[in-house]
């Protein structure tokens, strides 16, 4: 049921009125949120950005959920990056200064995964943004109308209607 629900959400998103830019922004932000360890100030800040800015919230949550599941793969890349940066001698005084600032320690930037994955997220943010935007555009131009007519979409729409009926009906 989870996959059906997720598939339904994705299709709804693709067939919604949100612009490709909005969708791609949501997915990119969700990506950063997903690969970062939770319980940090940074994650909370990203969450608040999603909340307060014009970003498709459900897309962002869907993206964050998906990338959380595969966050371990990014740890393999982010961890060593974070370690290298935190242990670098030339950055020592910088890190020490930041460590002693108020509030900043709550971001847990001093954790190798937090720092490393955040940087990976930042680096991949724009390419992901552009890629998703492109893909959404292509989908809407080439496949949306065709898919509207397929049985699959009709079934999914029916499931949604059925779920609504079950929820609110007798």
């Amino acid at each position: 049921m989870f996959f059906v629900s997720a598939l339904k959400s994705i299709l709804q998103l693709l067939h919604s009125n949100n612009s490709p830019r909005q969708i791609s922004l949501a997915i990119a932000l969700g990506f950063i949120l997903g690969i970062s360890p939770k319980g940090t100030l940074g994650a909370l800040v990203i969450f608040l950005i999603l909340f307060f800015f014009k970003v498709n919230f459900s897309a962002a949550i869907l993206s964050a959920t998906f990338f959380s599941l595969i966050a371990g793969l990014f740890d393999i890349i982010g961890g060593p990056i974070g370690y290298a940066l935190l242990s670098a001698d030339f950055l020592y005084s910088f890190w020490r200064a930041v460590y002693n600032l108020p509030i900043i320690p709550w971001t847990k930037f001093y954790n190798t995964i937090v720092l490393g994955n955040f940087l990976v997220g930042l680096i991949l943010f724009y390419p992901l943004l552009r890629l998703v935007e492109l893909l959404v555009g292509i989908y809407r131009r080439e496949f949306a109308r065709r898919l509207e007519k397929t049985r699959l979409l009709k079934i999914i729409k029916m499931i949604s209607l059925y779920n609504l009926y079950e929820k609110f009906g007798g």
Partner: peptide
């Protein structure tokens, strides 16, 4: 830590 490692820097105060 459970995920990654924490670097603990000296406190200035």
């Amino acid at each position: 830590r459970r995920r990654g490692q924490d670097f603990v820097f000296p406190r200035k105060d």
